[in-house]
Write a protein that binds this DNA or RNA. Structure first.
Lengths: 339, 339
DNA sequence: TTGTAGGCGTTATCAG
DNA sequence: CTGATAACGCCTACAA
């Protein structure tokens, strides 16, 4: 059998102890920053550590202490999707930001080729102290069961509220949709349609609900609805249908920016102008929103905050603090030129 | 002290052994698929495992076996950069693809907020059996030292060739630049300039060298050079200067697509047409290349293959096989409308 | 303040 | 084929 190509043996705590002329316990104390070690001894130990270039072995440490100081971010989506959806980039940044001042390490598990079984084993195999599960639009909580054996924080509420066995950080989708629609109303629009998302995804239903709420309160009709799947193409199709069935519409709330962008082309094809003939507002505030022509008014999705809040929540749970089981992050409207 | 919020204790190998009425050793054999276990005993053990929902503890396993079955992909760049550079998306896919049939788990370490010291400790702390280091254009090998204690495979050659203490998978940048330039020559272009990348990054120097090689072979001048930093803006500036100093140029090879895109605008501003007045070819074949107007002829960067090859190489090293210290991946020309 | 000793859950080496 | 019995490297009462 081979050695694995590596030359030197990693120095152990024992070796440090020998070199420093103290016991392993003392070295351990120094390494873990225990206050009850005399300064001079600590100094000697630190020198030995530096001289040997010692780094504690995680496996041993975690076996003994029953904690790994690592948390996993599992993303139940395809690799390409993860990398092409700006939402994730920001979310990861948020997580990293929140974890920076802590001792926790983040390890990302993208479920493309990895397979959920491998992921499950990873999570349950004592690799991490907790997990963050983030899927964008889908309210996928297929990892709900692992929360029975491991602290888990989900991004986005589950589809079935009763399933909420664990902690969730979500964006206030309903309220966001409501202020978006209210903005349209304030602009004097009378016939406001919506391109809703799939009704089997929480954001899809929540955003549609928010739209209806605003309309109802204003005494306006809420019957102009078409559904898309959050893709630009589906947005175009939905918009076309909306224009056919409700020729009098003068505004539309799209459940996400990508569908809104799709709607742009359908509106142009119909010979109508934005925002002159029809005003449009999206949701997410992704990179397409600001570069669209005209720039899209949209609801800002606090992805950075979401990542950070998820991480903070998880750490609290791990450390044994009491934490609210659901955190709702506020959304805000970004007004551009499409309204 | 708190329990960490988790309810049940994880079942141990010992518990499985008890339930199955065998020794721990036997359970371990079954778990690891050892052939020397009688079928009936194995069956009983498997049932016990299923009944208890047992998952081996990684820390213990890795402590005892001195291997973690995990590898790290460290990306020494900012989070936003990682997520906005299509190169990484594909690279990660390649890694995942190559790892799928193996028992290795991938954990991504993005060096945004994480900090290199934390990363170093992670790598040296026995968390992984090996590491993949990938930076896009920068030949950053600041992790070279860890290769002394851990198998490491780098993506992209180091800036200083003598520093190559370890394994590297690289794209044949020089050859790619050469065929790109040759293509321009074949198209009958006579005055071929280049927008080169930073000369402190390997791809920057290799691509410039390839360009010069082709020109020299054809007996054409290779003095029209301007430098950029791989960003679109820098490409525009370089192109403007090129047009000023060499008004007779009829073609340009840009060291990457983003700079090529930047050059597009400078060429347009100068009132010249692409490819009529000046032909242009880029490098990378990223998503901007195909959507540019006109679509950009470019050198395809085999990022998927690169990721896969890096992973395969690392696994081989870990398993103790002999592996060539440098693998050069071939590049190919994608001809579109800019030439 | 420091050292001693036992154990964390697995693997691996030997006997049987 | 199966079962004791050491490690593996570190943490943590408990003792000194």
């Amino acid at each position: 059998m081979s050695t694995g190509g590596v030359t030197g043996h990693a120095p152990t705590l024992e070796m440090v102890a020998a070199r420093a002329g103290v016991s392993r316990a003392t070295v351990s104390r120094v390494v873990n920053g225990s206050p009850k070690v005399s300064p001079d001894v600590a100094e000697v130990v630190r020198e030995a550590i530096a001289a040997l270039n010692y780094v504690p072995n995680r496996a041993a440490r975690s076996l003994a202490s029953r904690r790994t100081q690592a948390i996993a971010l599992v993303v139940p989506e395809s690799t390409s999707r993860v990398f092409n959806d700006p939402f994730f980039a920001t979310l990861v940044q948020g997580v990293g930001l929140a974890l920076a001042p802590t001792e926790y390490t983040l390890s990302m598990l993208i479920e493309s080729e990895t397979g959920s079984e491998k992921t499950r084993r990873y999570l349950l195999g004592g690799n991490v102290d907790g997990a963050l599960v983030a899927s964008h639009h889908t309210g996928d909580h297929s990892y709900a069961h692992v929360s029975q054996s491991l602290p888990v924080v989900f991004g986005g509420r589950p589809l079935d509220p009763t399933e909420s066995v664990t902690h969730t950080v979500d964006v206030d989708n309903a309220h966001g949709a409501e202020i978006a629609t209210q903005h349209l109303i304030d602009r004097g629009r009378q016939r406001i349609a919506t391109i809703a998302g799939p009704q089997d995804m929480p954001p899809g239903v929540d955003r549609k609900r928010g739209w209806a709420t605003a309309l109802e309160r204003a005494g306006l009709p809420d019957d102009a609805v078409e559904y898309g799947d959050f893709s630009p193409a589906s947005g175009a199709i939905a918009m076309r249908r909306l224009l056919e069935r409700h020729p009098d519409l003068d505004a539309v709330f799209a459940a996400n920016d990508q569908m809104a962008i799709g709607a742009y082309s359908a509106i142009a094809d119909a010979g109508r102008s934005i925002p002159g003939d029809v005003a449009i507002v999206g949701f997410d505030d992704d990179r397409y929103a600001s570069t669209a022509m005209p720039p899209l008014t949209t609801v800002h999705q606090p992805s950075l905050e979401m990542g950070a809040e998820m991480a903070r929540t998880l750490v609290r749970i791990i450390e044994g603090d009491e934490v609210a089981s659901t955190t709702l992050l506020p959304t805000s409207l970004v007004i551009r030129q499409s309204t």
